[in-house]
């Protein structure tokens, strides 16, 4: 794989939006307030902390009229790309750009809202707007339209490996010179069905100790990537030098470890493979579950955290979660 320059990062999550908010959250300067949602499972009622992301600030960048037909999934994805492009300081216009949108579960809230229209109003009155936005690549379509991206667009779903496969594809497009720039990232949203599943799987787990402060999360993380060239100035966040599917395991030593300790398998995944690959035991550890909640693609915000270390600040202490 050729090295990929990371020119910009657009994170949106429970911590806020943009790298400044994300870094502040990593440093412990932002107090994350999960939304408490009542979920009823077979074991009774639970007040589940849900790490929601807010797409309303997107209106600072895009006129509300243009956003009115977009669901929360597409808005958060669009928000992530807008932030990544702004963070890069580059203009997509005139650049051959590709777009890759990865998601573990797609626009589930909209899919179930579409089913609501079928159940409440009957098959013949199902909502075309909800159906259109429930299709996996609707977010990519909205993003492409916003930026006038006429290069290749790819929507993919590969569970916890979704970001890995997105980055491999971005690398292939750039290496093959199909495009000059790739907007590449992940998006997953919460809905109450997922909350029910998250809590129910946790209750079924024999090995995981239930922690009342843990909960599902949602968010988007997009990268502005280009081919690394010697003649170019050093990219803002350095380079992605290797991306490998998780069955290609070769241990590496890292200055710090990022983990996700509070997943709800099989709906989401922990950092088991990742931690196997980072054999050093005493390095500082960041637990992103305290910042983003439990996400179905755990590697997404890891990458942002790894690309944006805080040289002048200590890493936050291991979470009490």
């Amino acid at each position: 794989m050729i090295p990929l320059a990371i020119n910009g990062i657009g994170p949106v999550g429970a911590f806020g939006a943009g790298m400044a908010d994300f870094k502040a959250a990593l440093a412990g300067d932002i107090k994350i307030k999960p939304e408490i949602t009542r979920i009823t499972t077979r074991n009774g009622d639970h007040d589940l902390p849900v790490f929601r992301a807010d797409s309303k600030p997107l209106a600072q960048f895009i006129k509300p009229r243009k956003l009115r037909r977009l669901d929360n999934f597409s808005r958060l994805a669009l928000f992530g790309t807008v932030l990544a492009v702004a963070d890069s300081g580059m203009d997509l216009e005139g650049s051959q750009t590709g777009l890759i949108v990865a998601s573990a579960h797609g626009a589930t809230a909209t899919t179930f809202a579409f089913l609501d229209s079928v159940i409440d109003d009957g098959d013949a009155l199902a909502s075309p707007t909800l159906f259109s936005n429930s299709v996996h690549n609707a977010a990519a379509s909205h993003i492409a339209e916003h930026f006038t991206i006429t290069g290749p667009t790819l929507s993919l779903t590969q569970g916890a490996n979704s970001l890995t496969m997105a980055l491999i594809t971005a690398g292939q497009w750039l290496a093959g010179e199909r495009v000059e720039t790739v907007l590449c990232g992940v998006i997953d949203c919460y809905c109450d069905v997922l909350g029910y599943c998250w809590q129910s799987y946790r209750e079924q787990s024999k090995t995981t100790k239930l922690n009342p402060a843990a909960g599902p999360g949602e968010g988007a993380l997009f990268l502005h990537l280009s081919r690394a060239r010697r003649s170019d100035p050093k990219p803002r966040y350095g380079y992605l030098k290797k991306v490998a599917p998780d069955n290609e395991e070769s241990p590496v030593n890292l200055p710090f470890t990022i983990s996700h300790s509070h997943c709800s398998k099989p709906l989401s995944s922990d950092s088991e493979t990742y931690l196997k690959l980072t054999p050093a035991k005493n390095q500082p550890q960041v637990d992103l579950a305290t910042i983003c909640g439990d996400l179905p693609i755990p590697s997404s915000f890891d990458l942002a955290a790894a690309a944006a270390p805080l040289p002048d600040r200590p890493l936050p202490e291991q979470s009490s979660l």
Partner: peptide
């Protein structure tokens, strides 16, 4: 044991999967 990818590009998914 190689890479696995499920493409969800709506009606062009099959064509895109072969191209990838």
């Amino acid at each position: 044991h190689g890479p696995q990818l499920t493409v969800v590009n709506a009606c062009s998914s099959g064509t895109d999967a072969i191209a990838i």
